[in-house]
Nucleic acid binder design. Sequence first.
RNA 1: GUGGGUGUAGCUCAGCUGGUUAGAGCGCCGGAUUGUGGAUCCGGAGGUCGCGGGUUCGAAACCCGUCAUCCACCCCA
Length: 418
Amino acid sequence: MIKGIKGVKDILPEETPRWRLIEETARRWAVLYGFHEIRVPIFEVTALFARSIGASTDIVEKEMYTFQDRDGTSITLRPEGTAGTVRAYIEHNRAADPLPQKYFYTGPMFRHERPQAGRLRQFHQFGVESFGVADPRADVEVIALLWRMLSDLKLPSMTLEINNLGYAADREAYRPQLVAFLKQREETLCGNCRRRIDANPLRVLDCKVPQCRAATEAAPRLADCLSEQARAHFGSVLGELEAIGIPYSLNHRLVRGLDYYCLTTFEVTSTSLGAQNAVGAGGRYDALVETLGGPVTPAVGFAVGVERMAMMLPLAASSSESASVYVAGFGDRGSAAGFSALEELRLAGIRAVTDFRSGSLKSHLRQADRLRSQFALIIGDDEVVKGSAILRDMETKVQQEVFLTSLSSQVSSLLRIS
RNA sequence: GUGGGUGUAGCUCAGCUGGUUAGAGCGCCGGAUUGUGGAUCCGGAGGUCGCGGGUUCGAAACCCGUCAUCCACCCCA
């Protein structure tokens, strides 16, 4: 048997209503906040991701699905959505358009990781990117959208954590202080963190190993090295969040795994998720557009994991999609008439189904019951002779005769009454 | 990449310290007087016991390997 690829899941019909609820809710809120949908390719030239996400990040180092195109160019399945959106923004010279440049996207992302609860190799994100506005209220707008969206879905036990990463120059000033501090306690750190001291010291602060946490408790804080502008920016973000009633908690250890973030970074987690507890995350990335060859453009955005949101939504929340009419045609003439009636109802916009395998009225009604149809349209040979059919209300068992010549109009009016 | 758990019917699982034709519940199909569903009763279909070796008179069970899957580390959405 040919099976699906490891870490790549089918989303079966039982689950798709839940997915649609998530996607429709996200879309509705994004539009409400003035964002417009963009659809970018799921694969790009490898260099795009390497340059934007950061060469020394885990994603680029070991998690990308990279392969050679037929002409030898290196192609990568997108591991996240920001890089492609920024590429499109630059390529189509969207900066020349004076309208607010606010985009949202949704679709599959790919990372070669070991599958786990809430972690897949093909997973889905919904994300937004807001280009061109350095004002802290742009950060708040994006965070508010994220928070309102998740609240609307009534996801349980969510917390918003936020931190200030400052500008690149701030981090350059801070880095030697942190490295010096970490080198002193190198012995107490986990192997991973020892390697990080040189590669990406900020990440040590985000390590979950208890010894590392304890060792970095007294570490110098980035917050103390921040420039006046960085502090001011973050201060207004927090102020505006309070003004519009969005609860947050400061987390000075919060360091995102992608290199392009600066100033505001945030993450929404839930305790009801398991080990992979991040529902969504994002931040400001003022240098990325320029890094990728575009004009200097401040930007801020976030992405949420659709699977992780789905995990927290009850399966029962899915709306029923049962048909209104089950057509029970039986006998030689009856089943022929039933097949015509089925098509006629559908052309009239009535959701109608049948089961071609069923030959007896009994098995038809059993199917109608199982499919939770509102009505059964019974057509046997006797009815065909009379030029009529019987419309049975499956719940009240009330039956009514309808004429085959005016079938769809009669059925629609009866459907409207019930 | 590193650990640990689990692989028996479509689904959830049982199968005692190795013993004959591998089971249950749910689901599915059919029947219980002639053309009326759900409940009940009866019957039926459906399984290379993940795969490959080995031990044994005999393996679903024990051993080795392998694959898959789940959870955790790591990392992140």
